[in-house]
Amino acid sequence: MTRLTMLKEVLKSLFSKPSTEPLAEVEKGVFSPYSRGCPVLIPEKCTGCSLCAMNCPSNAITMKIVGEKNVGGKTLPVRRPEFNYFKCIYCGLCAQVCQFNAIEMRRDLVILRPRSKC
């Protein structure tokens, strides 16, 4: 008897549509609509405080010297964070710790595109 129910289940599955999601959707390489996205710097807002680099869980942010500025007669290096997207775990912590909202999490960028057909 239980075998018959199982047979019914098998037949039902055999004639219904597969639930695999088509590859075409994946190929677009976009982030899921709910994901945190990918960190991108807004250079105008950044003050170079390196709070993001200190707190990054995967050490994916390095502070890079991009120029010099003159504050009260002293020349100080201007630092900007640089993201290593291969190390990044896309947790969005950098955007949350930033006091000046200088890091934006964007979902429309394609950083790593999955390989197309074999």
């Binding site: 899921s32 709910y34 994901s35 945190r36 775990i89 896309y90 947790c91 969005g92 912590l93």
Partner: peptide
């Protein structure tokens, strides 16, 4: 939907 990630929710 809730956390933004499927596995490592952060």
């Amino acid at each position: 939907l809730l956390t933004g990630n499927r596995v490592h929710k952060s």
